[in-house]
């Protein structure tokens, strides 16, 4: 397989495709939260594996970039490994697991715990970019709703949740409003991560390959999770800190330890957890704590 790489252009895509995607990215930045249609290409990985994010990354990536790829917050999940390897092969770029060192971070389903910085780009893989899609399956209709800023349906849906459950029962892909104009899907990140999007110093780009859409949130941009005065937006809370590094106020994965109901909770962001452990932080199940 390695021998094939030389037959392809830098970062795989041909230049005409990159220009088309780059123009879409600029439009997306100029109209924050608006989904720009683009002529998405077939990629050498299946739709659903992050072809939108990969096309965005391939179009912005340069030889000086340092790339980090995460899936579920982790650098070592198989698809993150696979995408990182793809870019090593077709662009020869330096890769890292460090959130701080990366210039471009491609992600599926999480925003890193460490605050992002000015100049960094976060590229999201998006399955269904249309936040109104599950309320109205027709593109022709949802496009009109965005054009007219007609988001009543979304509020009705959220309010029905409250009427039925006493609270909003959406836990991920929780809709946000960008700069007071477009309602946007933050991709299937847990709502825990929504506040990190607000006024982030990093540029956030979203690529949906199968659905052929690109959208963006520029740095220092208002991103507000939809809510109601009597039911304000809340993020998930965990009862315990991370069992390995003791971190609190981070998103945790539940790990099943045995078939007798044994559970532990550990950081979903593997780099964050490892850095904390390296700095001497310990949780109740880390090696040191047990010995």
């Amino acid at each position: 397989m390695n021998a094939q790489a030389s037959n392809y252009n830098f970062a795989y895509l041909d230049e005409q495709t990159k220009r088309m995607i780059r123009r879409a990215i600029l439009k997306a930045i100029a109209v924050p939260g608006y989904q720009v249609p683009f002529a998405s290409r077939e990629m050498p990985m299946p739709y659903g594996w992050g072809t939108g994010g990969v096309q965005v990354t391939a179009s912005i990536l340069g030889p000086d970039d340092v790339l980090k790829v995460i899936d579920q917050g982790a650098d070592d999940t198989t698809n993150a490994v696979s995408i990182r390897k793809f870019f090593q092969r077709v662009a020869g770029v330096e890769t890292t697991t460090s959130t701080e060192e990366a210039t471009i971070i491609q992600t599926r389903h999480r925003i890193p715990e460490a605050p992002l910085q000015e100049g960094q780009v976060l590229v999201y893989q998006v399955p269904i970019p249309e936040p109104l899609r599950f309320l109205e399956p027709r593109e022709t209709e949802t496009r009109k709703m965005h054009a007219l800023e007609e988001y009543g349906l979304m509020h009705v849906k959220l309010y029905e949740d409250i009427a039925r459950n006493g609270h909003i029962a959406t836990t991920y892909a929780y809709p946000v409003k960008v700069e007071g104009r477009y309602v946007m899907d933050p991709s299937p990140t847990p709502k825990f991560d929504n506040p990190k999007m607000h006024m982030s110093p990093a540029l956030q780009l979203f690529g949906a390959g199968r659905e052929k859409r690109i959208y963006a949130v520029p740095p220092h941009t208002e991103v507000v999770s939809l809510d109601f005065e009597d039911h304000p937006f809340e993020v998930q809370r965990f009862d315990k800190p991370c069992a390995l590094c003791g971190a609190e106020q981070v998103y945790l994965d539940e790990v099943v330890l045995d078939d007798r109901g044994g559970r532990m909770f550990v950081c979903s962001d593997t780099h964050h957890c490892e850095s904390r452990q390296a700095a001497g932080h310990r949780g109740e199940m880390s090696g040191e704590a047990l010995s």
Partner: peptide, 25 residues
């Protein structure tokens, strides 16, 4: 079918962050 198979089959990729959110709920 390339789009369809991709999106159907992607359900087998890890979704445990979102599943965790749903578990909590």
């Amino acid at each position: 079918n390339v789009q369809a198979t991709g999106f159907v089959e992607h359900l087998k990729l890890p979704h445990y962050v979102d599943f965790q959110a749903e578990l909590g709920l």
